[in-house]
């Protein structure tokens, strides 16, 4: 046995924890958006619904209106800040809800009778294999589009993938000898899940949260773009792109700015997910 391994280990661990520059940049951008989701309404320079400049709709960027005005002469910056709570907040909320529900069901499934587990897993696989956009459309047609409906529908749509992912990670871990050792020691189920299994699937959960966040952000902005998501007078970034489409031909900032914000959000999250999943492998 050599002791060299011990000496080099802490540096290795630090290297493993160090994120690549791009991912750190992603984290910074993402942090800024989360901040805006929380305080955007308070910080917005104008009332997002006010026709501040109704004579000059789709106005250019200026000192008064940093990102120009929209097709009704409202301040684009204020509308983006106000929409952050939907475009950033809703995916955060629903991805977290789906992850928690999926994880709870996934871990419970490994504890119940095998027949129940099989049936539940088949149901979840079926749900998971459905085209999510189509099903979201069906649900919006059935229930109408409102904030509570969107939250419930999107959460339900993404529980199955969380279930599948967390369950398979948990099963892999529960076959490890250290879990077996704790089981023969006589440890209870709660200890097994909390101390032996959960800490080892945290990276999987974080990665899954990030990927789900991206999918939901894309889905939600898409629904709003179709006019079936967030309803006026409120607007998320997808809706902002849609309502200012008339400005597309001359590349008005009212249509480009929310599009760029949306892109920066999803790309930032993708970069963070990359860093987390690489850390998991190392």
């Amino acid at each position: 046995m050599t002791d060299t391994k011990i000496e080099t280990a802490p540096t290795l661990r630090r290297a493993r924890n160090r994120w690549p520059v791009l991912s750190l940049a992603g984290a910074a951008v993402f942090g800024a958006w989360v901040f805006l989701a929380l305080f955007g309404d308070l910080l917005a320079p104008y009332d997002p619904g006010e026709f501040v400049d109704s004579w000059d709709s789709l106005g250019p960027m200026s000192a008064t209106y940093p990102l120009g005005t929209d097709y009704l002469g409202r301040d684009v910056l204020s509308r983006i800040m106000s929409g952050a709570k939907y475009t950033v907040g809703l995916p955060m909320l629903t991805a977290a809800l789906a992850l928690i529900l999926g994880a709870v069901l996934g871990i419970l499934a490994t504890l119940v009778r095998p027949a129940v587990d099989t049936a539940l897993s088949w149901f979840m696989d079926t749900m998971n294999s459905l085209p999510s956009t189509i099903f979201a459309l069906v649900a919006v047609a059935g229930f109408g589009s409102s904030l509570p409906v969107l939250i419930v529908v999107i959460t339900v749509l993404y529980v199955p993938s969380a279930y599948r992912n967390i369950r398979s990670a948990a099963i892999n871990i529960s076959r490890m000898d250290y879990v077996e050792a704790a089981r023969v020691r006589g440890e209870g189920t709660a200890h097994l899940i909390r101390r032996e299994i959960l800490p080892n699937i945290v990276p999987n959960m974080l990665t899954h949260f990030g990927i789900t966040f991206i999918y939901i952000a894309l889905l939600l902005s898409g629904l709003s773009f179709l006019g079936l998501g967030i309803q006026p007078p409120e607007a998320d970034w997808g809706a902002l792109v849609a309502e200012n489409m008339v400005g597309l031909s001359y590349a008005a900032s009212a249509v480009l700015a929310p599009a760029i914000c949306l892109l920066s959000l999803t790309i930032a999250m993708t970069l963070m997910v990359d860093a987390i999943s690489h850390g998991k492998d190392g």
Partner: peptide
């Protein structure tokens, strides 16, 4: 390798 919990 698999007998010791890496999270502890």
């Amino acid at each position: 390798d698999t007998a010791l919990n890496p999270a502890q």
